[in-house]
Amino acid sequence: MSILSDTIEWFSRPESWSGPAGIPVRLGEHLGYTALAVGIAALVAVPLGLYIGHTGRFHTLAVTFTGALRAIPTLGLLTFLVLLTGIGLTPPILALAILCIPPLLAGIYSGIEAVPRAVIDASRAQGMTEWQILSRVELPLASPIIVGGLRSAVLQVIATATVAAFVPLGGLGRYIIDGLAVRDLPRVMGGSLIVVALAFLIDMLFALVQRYAARVANPAARTPQPSRSLSPDIDVEVSHEAT
């Protein structure tokens, strides 16, 4: 109970919420690293995912590629990039972007491939171009799966962005790394709780977006169906009573 009470006391300190090491600043840095890493990953994953999903080419290669990237340890990759390019913003952002590519790429091409072929063939029969099919048919129908892939990618980056503290950068990982260095367990616990709360909040927001995308992609799912009688005999009895 002492660690819990000390963590609550750490949250209640004014210095924990102000200054360059305050929670708002560290939270903003963490979100900034996450947005930058996801943006860089999207530059690679979005065009590749759309091309693979729409054409069906290089599917096996994409599966192998994403599987290989998932197997790379983030800390080992970060250490390699630091030795290669030096200390700075580039190594952790590149490491996070590489971590973000597999779920984002898989979500995009899997969503496009899940669109029924009959719908695509009907669109071609109506004279739609390939770009029109992709933008007006495949993307709207695939949006729930694509948002799910983005959701997984963002949450993975948020949870792993704490590795940025291994180099002289900010973010919520500073509370964990600096706290471990001086055995300040309340600071470590506080930083961990903020990361968990942030991931939970972002996950809830993406869940709402994904639910909305599913409703847009399948309007029939929210259309109320006409009520049906339980048995033909009931209809017959009702008609007799009415007469």
Results as ranks from 00 to 15, higher is better:
A153Y: 03
V209C: 09
A21D: 13
L89R: 13
H54A: 14
A199P: 03
G127V: 05
V63H: 04
G22K: 02
V167I: 09
L99S: 01
T34F: 04
S227A: 14
P20A: 11
G28Y: 08
R228H: 12
G149Q: 06
P103F: 01
S18C: 08
F166P: 00
L185T: 06
L172M: 02
T79K: 10
A37F: 01
V137T: 10
S135Q: 13
H30I: 04
P103N: 08
I87Y: 14
F11T: 02
L43W: 01
N218M: 11
A181M: 08
L50D: 02
H59N: 11
D6M: 01
A95T: 15
I146G: 00
A21L: 14
I8D: 01
G170P: 03
G179E: 00
V163C: 06
P219D: 05
H30Q: 07
P226M: 08
A68I: 14
L198W: 02
R57A: 12
P20I: 09
I87D: 08
W10S: 00
A220I: 10
V216M: 15
T162V: 15
T64Q: 15
P140Q: 03
I93E: 07
S227E: 13
L205Q: 09
P20E: 12
T64K: 13
L27S: 10
E9D: 14
S229E: 05
R187W: 07
G76Q: 08
A42F: 04
L89E: 15
R70V: 10
V182N: 01
A21E: 11
A106F: 05
P186E: 04
S152G: 13
R57H: 14
I133S: 05
V63N: 07
P20F: 14
I87V: 15
L169Q: 12
T55Y: 08
M189G: 02
S16T: 14
G49V: 00
G76E: 11
V25W: 09
I120S: 09
A71I: 06
A213C: 07
D235C: 09
F206S: 10
V195E: 03
P14A: 13
P73Y: 13
G39Y: 07
